[in-house]
Amino acid sequence: MNAPLQPTRHAPIDTLDRQIIQATQAGLPLTPRPYHQLAAHLGLEPEEVMRRLQRMQQRGIIRRIGAVPNHYALGYRGNGMSVWDVPDERIAQLGRRIGELDFVSHCYQRPRHLPDWPYNLFAMVHGHDRDEVRDKVSIIAGLLGADNRGHQILFSTRILKKSGLRLPT
């Protein structure tokens, strides 16, 4: 464990925001007035709940609000974590390019762990099977060209635990 943990990014959320996050992370009730139901549960005004959700969305704490597909159940059974060694001075430009590809669900810069782990760019690639994932990874390799100094695909063989975001209290 030698990589320094990043200091927490400033989280402009207060107790009420936190309560709303906790109450919605398992999903909204599928009833005609879900935010009203949520508000009643939390003892808040519905307008307050909607206003706070909107504010969290504007601040990027909420990425989006909608149906969250279960890729695996829908047949996307190839799940490949592609990892790339690219020049640090070019990573911002390259990362943005890879991050906008529609088959990439996550694209992050992470620290290297030398000498064993030279990879600094991670892109999660989804496909129906491993061959489709490999094809998509080839597309990324083509885009990176000479900036790709090495890459691997790590396929997952088993999901050992997967739970929604939980906020330890």
Binding site: A11, R59, I62, A73
Partner: peptide, 30 residues
């Protein structure tokens, strides 16, 4: 409402609601 509930029940969607950016709420790491 019914169709979303069905999709959720059969596992096609895991939920309907906000998707949070984990690292903006606390500290997290791979």
């Amino acid at each position: 409402c019914d169709t979303l509930a069905q999709l959720q029940q059969q596992g096609a969607i895991s939920r309907v609601g906000p998707v949070f950016r984990t690292h903006s709420i606390g500290a997290s790491t791979l």
